[in-house]
Simulated assay, not measured.
Amino acid sequence: MAVRDASHDWHRSRVWELEVTGGAHRYVKVSPSVKFFTRETRAYHHVVPALGHSRAPQLLDSRADDLALLLTAAPGAPAPGLGLTSDEWRAVHAQAGMLCARLHEAGELGLDDRAEAEGSLEAAADGAEKYLARAGGRLTGGEQQLVRDYAAQLRRVGQVPLGYIHGDNQELH
C-alpha cells in the first residue's frame, strides 16, 4: 500500500490518498471539527446518493472518535491539470452546475440541517465585519460601505427556499 499526502493548501486540511491492493485509490480525510465531520457524514449518507451513481466519492467507513472518513476516489480526473480549452471549461462548469442543482433538490433537510440553513443568512451578515477587518486597507470606504449595505439587506430578506449546498465547490489548483 502506498500513502500520499493529498491535503489542500489550507492549514486545517488533512487528507491522505491510499493506493490499495489492485491499484484502487481511497482517501482518508480527517475533519477539522465535530461540526464538519457530522455535516459531511450526513451528506454522504443522505445527500450524495441523489447525485447519481459514480458522480461523487462514496463513504466506505467513518470513525467519529477520530473525525475520520474513508472515501472512494472521485470519478474522473481533476480538471485544472488537464489543459482544457475554453469550451471544455464551459462544459466542466455546466456539469458542476447540474450536480449542484441536483444537490439543492436532494430532498427535505433534516432538523439539524434545517436549523443551520435557517441561520445562514444571519451568520453571513454577522461575518461581514470580520471579513472587512481581514481585507484591511485593500477596500475603499465606498467598497466597505457596499459590503455593510449588503449585509444589512441579508437581515431583511425573510424566508427563502432551503436546500442542501456544497460547502466547498471550487476548482482545485
Rank of each mutant, 00 (worst) to 15 (best):
Y27V: 07
A124P: 10
G23N: 10
T140G: 05
G158Y: 01
T41R: 15
F36I: 14
A106G: 04
H11C: 15
D65C: 11
L99M: 04
Y131G: 01
S120N: 11
W16Q: 05
H104L: 05
P57C: 05
S13C: 08
R134D: 13
H11G: 15
A43R: 09
G97W: 03
A50K: 04
V160W: 08
R42E: 03
Q145L: 02
W89E: 06
A123W: 13
H93F: 12
I165W: 12
G110N: 01
H8A: 15
L70K: 04
T38W: 14
F37V: 01
Q144N: 00
G110A: 02
R155L: 08
E129P: 02
W10F: 14
E17N: 09
Q159R: 14
R156V: 08
G97S: 03
V147R: 02
G163F: 00
P57A: 04
L60D: 08
G22H: 05
G158T: 07
H45S: 07
G167Q: 11
R39N: 01
E129M: 06
E129L: 03
Y27R: 10
V157S: 04
P32A: 11
A56F: 05
A128D: 05
D65R: 14
P57F: 07
V48L: 08
H53E: 13
H53G: 14
Q159F: 10
E118C: 06
A77I: 13
S120W: 13
Q58I: 08
H45N: 07
G136H: 03
R148Q: 02
G81D: 13
A2W: 14
E143M: 01
E122Y: 15
G137R: 01
A64D: 08
A101T: 01
L121Q: 04
G137A: 09
E116R: 02
D168L: 04
T72P: 04
A79K: 07
A68I: 06
G107Q: 02
S31L: 08
L59Q: 03
A117E: 01
G23W: 11
R90Q: 13
K35S: 12
L154I: 04
V47G: 04
R114Y: 02
Y131T: 03
D113K: 01
A56C: 08
T72W: 08
K35C: 11
D113G: 02
V92E: 05
S62F: 09
L59N: 02
L67Y: 10
H11Y: 15
A101N: 07
P75C: 08
D61P: 06
Y131M: 07
Q145A: 00
W89F: 09
T85L: 11
A94I: 06
G52S: 01
L69T: 03
A124K: 11
A24T: 14
R114N: 01
S62V: 09
G76I: 12
T85P: 12
R4Y: 14
E105N: 05
G22M: 10
L60I: 01
A6E: 09
K29A: 04
I165G: 11
V30A: 12
V160T: 06
E88T: 10
A91S: 13
A124D: 11
A125V: 07
R4K: 15
D61Y: 00
